[in-house]
Computed example of a mutant assay.
Amino acid sequence: MGLIDDVGILAIATRMQRLAEMMRKDGLQIYKDHQIAFEPKWFPVIYTLYHKPLLSVVEIAVEIGYTHPSTISLLKELEKEKLIRSKKDKIDSRKRLLQLTDKGQEMVTKMKPVWNLMIDAITELTDTPTNLLQAIIEVEQKLEEKSMAARAAAIHQSKGGSR
């Protein structure tokens, strides 16, 4: 165990990022093992467009919970790979609507059984007495109610701190 592991709750974001990176790396390996050239970071966009076939950039950003610039970056990669395409909205020509290409649809068809395999593996990993997914859901809900920054400010103020 390193210093970051020893510091406890202060390094929770670092530990979560490390866990996410390990899981993405394994996800990439699982895709490779099944001869699928797919980056796990593309998953939220591909999955969303599979279930909601025609969305604007803003709608995708809202669906996946990413910032607009992060979403644009992913969309550019996916367009370059020819997994998605865009077209102008008939009502508002400034708006781009995105959808999976035939190549993107075919990839989803290949990935669906792999996703089921991943669900089983992730369930096995997270099926602990504290249930990681449930804990994440609870923390996300608490963050929606009040940010960590707002909580820190309130704690600071309650301890007599000044700004």
Rank of each mutant, 00 (worst) to 15 (best):
I46T: 03
S158E: 02
Y31L: 15
P40E: 01
G104A: 02
L74P: 00
S86C: 07
N116A: 11
K76L: 10
L117E: 15
V45I: 15
R85D: 05
K88W: 01
I119W: 03
I136F: 13
H68S: 05
D120C: 08
E77G: 09
F43S: 15
P44A: 04
V58R: 10
A37F: 12
V62Y: 09
K32G: 10
A13I: 12
I119Y: 08
V58W: 00
I46D: 02
E144L: 13
K103N: 10
Y50F: 09
E140N: 12
I122Q: 03
L49V: 02
R163S: 05
D120V: 02
A150I: 01
V58A: 03
K76G: 02
Q99E: 15
I30Q: 13
P44E: 03
A20Y: 08
A11V: 07
S56T: 07
D127W: 05
P44M: 01
Q134A: 13
K32A: 15
V58L: 05
M16E: 04
E81C: 13
S73G: 01
T123P: 00
I36H: 03
L83N: 02
Q105I: 10
K41L: 10
H34S: 14
A149V: 12
S162D: 01
L133S: 06
L19V: 03
R163Q: 08
L125W: 00
I12L: 06
Q17D: 06
I36Q: 06
K87A: 05
I84Q: 04
L143V: 06
T48Q: 09
V108I: 15
L78G: 02
I60L: 03
A37Q: 12
M148P: 00
G161T: 01
R96E: 10
G2H: 12
E138Y: 11
Q99D: 08
Y47H: 14
E79V: 09
E145F: 04
K52M: 07
Q134G: 09
P53I: 02
S86F: 03
L55S: 01
S56N: 00
S86D: 06
K90E: 10
A121N: 07
L54P: 00
H34N: 15
D89V: 08
R151C: 02
P40K: 00
P129K: 14
E138H: 11
I136R: 10
Q134M: 12
S70A: 14
E138L: 10
S162E: 05
K87R: 11
M118H: 02
T71K: 09
R163N: 02
K159Q: 12
L74V: 05
M118V: 07
V62T: 11
D5I: 06
I72A: 02
L83R: 00
E145N: 08
K110E: 14
G160Y: 01
S70K: 13
L125A: 11
S70N: 12
A154P: 00
D26W: 04
K76W: 05
E63N: 11
E77L: 10
K103V: 07
Q29A: 15
N116E: 14
